[in-house]
Design a protein around this nucleic acid. Structure first.
Lengths: 248, 248
DNA sequence: CGCTCAGTTGACGACGCTCAACGAGAGTGG
DNA sequence: CCACTCTCGTTGAGCGTCGTCAACTGAGCG
């Protein structure tokens, strides 16, 4: 099993058999290393391969002409990068590691072949893409209709959920690699205001900083402050009619 | 051809043959009608069918507990609704017509069957989903990192492009169905401020209102004011290696 | 020891929100 | 035909969140 985090993302898809999981594992090439801060994918690049993160954190973002940056999402181990970008000549976003990064790639040709053999594998990856889209939706709400401290709290709770899902919370308490400048560009506010919103949460006893890590002191209270509703992250099994259709 | 707008969305995918287009057309059931303002899809619904809009405009949005609303995107004729939602037990968003709406549906079972017969059709719909995701990315940037009047101008230019693509600009000059309250919830600002941002654009001679319609007086100047870069909307053909892989 | 990078804080102004009121137009019923 | 109502757009006043500019701290590193 080359990338256990990817497998954990898929555990709720009970229709997957070892056939599909083995095929998926065979698709993945050897792990590649990327340095923190390196330009991995640049806006305008042609993305010829799909990548799956096996270690570290990355950000996906867009830049405006005058230097403003908006981060679209944070990529964690087990997350897939560039699945749709395959279908377009150029990527309309940039991706950059915020820690040293490990990634597994796979090429489209063998993937298409695998999808023909095992359509359930194609569904599984589409389902992952759908998960990603739900997170994008929530990012729009966060940035568009929440107040600064709500945004901050909401992001923390989301990351907490996603890290737990892939079994990385222990590591997260060791390190939280997002700087306040990154949080600011993620949440659509200035770096100074990100600092103040964060300190607000600290002052209210909801989070704490120790060294380079962030601790969520009271996840319930934090969720409440954020107006957080976890349903968009829930990994229910597929709806019954779909499962049945795929079982054939 | 039941829904010509859907076909126009797919014209740039030159790899599609009449086989796929005929199959797609057969999938679509008869047109259904929806009233303006009706609750079409509600948060928490199970979405059992995919819909394609054939007439009218709709909004996809999320509500917060205290009544705040964030619109995620605007849906125009030819746009697909609920493609990914099929793979989840509940929809995490609501959809509502802002004009009288016509839709064609298709069910997942025959669609999966069609995808097996014609994998290129599955690719085409995934490509459409990818287009939608690019627009979501841009919506995040718009709301997170642009100023109020930039947001307003940017949205107008995007809608202009998308309407032209499906051949509806003539109709659009007749009617622009988004109220300022909708624009506000789309752009993450108050209704009052949406009004002021809009008036700003009017005052600068970039747009005009006549009756219920909005006219873009100077698309170039408007794009410039918006910092608009159309590349995220460009419908290039598939990258060469993908086309070749699919030609087999 | 000087460099860089991340975080912190203050001062000040502006962009955008809330509250409130009003006008125009369309639709409805008496 | 005229009130009545509802929706949508418009405008003013006042306030507060948030951005900008700037300076300073502390940690890590060569």
């Amino acid at each position: 099993m080359k990338n256990p985090f990817l497998h954990r993302q898929l555990t709720s898809l009970t229709c997957l058999r070892s056939l599909e999981l083995t095929l998926l594992d065979k698709l993945l090439c050897d792990e590649e290393e990327l340095d923190k801060g390196a330009s991995w994918i640049v806006e305008g690049d042609t993305v010829g391969k799909v990548s799956v993160i096996s270690r570290g954190w990355a950000i996906r973002f867009k830049l405006l002409d005058d230097g403003r940056r908006q981060i679209l999402n944070v990529l964690l181990p087990g997350d897939v990068v560039g699945f749709f970008a395959l279908l377009f000549k150029t990527a309309e976003y940039a991706v950059e590691p915020v820690t040293p990064l490990g990634v597994h790639c796979f090429s489209p040709e063998p993937a298409f072949e695998a999808f023909r053999q095992a359509p359930r594998l194609a569904v599984a990856l589409s389902w992952l893409a759908g998960q990603g889209e739900r997170q994008l939706d929530e990012q729009i709400v966060r940035v568009g209709r929440r107040h600064a401290t709500e945004r901050m709290a909401h992001l923390f709770v989301e990351l907490n959920h996603r890290l737990q899902r892939v079994g990385l919370m222990a590591e997260q308490t060791r390190q939280f690699p997002l700087t306040q400048a990154i949080l600011a560009d993620m949440l659509g506010m200035s770096q100074v205001h990100a600092n103040r919103s964060f300190r607000q949460l600290v002052q209210d006893g909801l989070v704490a900083r120790r060294g380079g890590r962030i601790q969520l002191l009271d996840t319930n209270a934090l969720s409440q402050r954020a107006g957080f509703d976890a349903s968009y992250l829930e990994q229910n099994a597929l709806p019954t009619p779909i499962s049945q259709a795929l079982a054939r």
